[in-house]
Amino acid sequence: MRVIISDDHPVVLMGLKAALQSYGDKFRIVGEARNGQELVSLLSREPCDLLITDFSMPDDQLSEDGLSMLAGLRKSHPQLSILVLTMLSNPALVQGMLAVGVSGVVDKMAMTRELMLAIDVICAGRIYLSERTRKQIEEAVMVSDEPGSMSPREAEVVRFLAQGLTVSEIARRTGRSVKTVSQQKRDAMRKLGLDGDKQLYDYARSNGLL
Rank of each mutant, 00 (worst) to 15 (best):
A140R: 05
Y128Q: 08
A33Y: 03
V94M: 00
P91N: 07
F27P: 09
K26D: 13
D25Q: 09
L129V: 07
M189Q: 04
I119P: 12
R2V: 05
Q61P: 11
S41Y: 12
G208S: 07
L115T: 03
M189E: 03
D25T: 12
I82T: 03
L85C: 01
F55Q: 04
L210K: 09
S6D: 01
P91A: 05
L43E: 02
D145F: 15
G208C: 08
A118T: 15
L93S: 00
V178T: 04
L42F: 12
Q79D: 12
S41M: 07
L42P: 11
L93V: 02
G208N: 08
D107K: 04
I137E: 02
Y128S: 08
R205K: 15
A18L: 08
G24Y: 12
Q183G: 06
T166Q: 10
S68H: 01
L83H: 05
V167Q: 04
L42T: 12
I82M: 03
G208L: 07
N35T: 05
M69R: 02
Q95T: 13
A110F: 07
R28Q: 09
L117Y: 14
Q61F: 15
G148H: 14
S151Q: 10
E131A: 11
G193C: 06
Q37M: 14
L210E: 04
R2L: 10
I29S: 02
M1W: 10
V106P: 11
S76M: 08
G36D: 03
K17L: 07
M109H: 13
D59N: 05
E138F: 14
Y201W: 15
G175S: 01
E154W: 06
M142H: 15
L115G: 04
Q21V: 06
D65L: 08
M69T: 00
R176Q: 03
D65H: 06
L88T: 09
A110C: 10
C123D: 15
G196S: 10
R45H: 15
A92W: 01
L161I: 13
R190H: 10
F27W: 10
R74A: 02
D120E: 15
V167G: 01
G36C: 02
M109L: 15
M14H: 15
R28P: 11
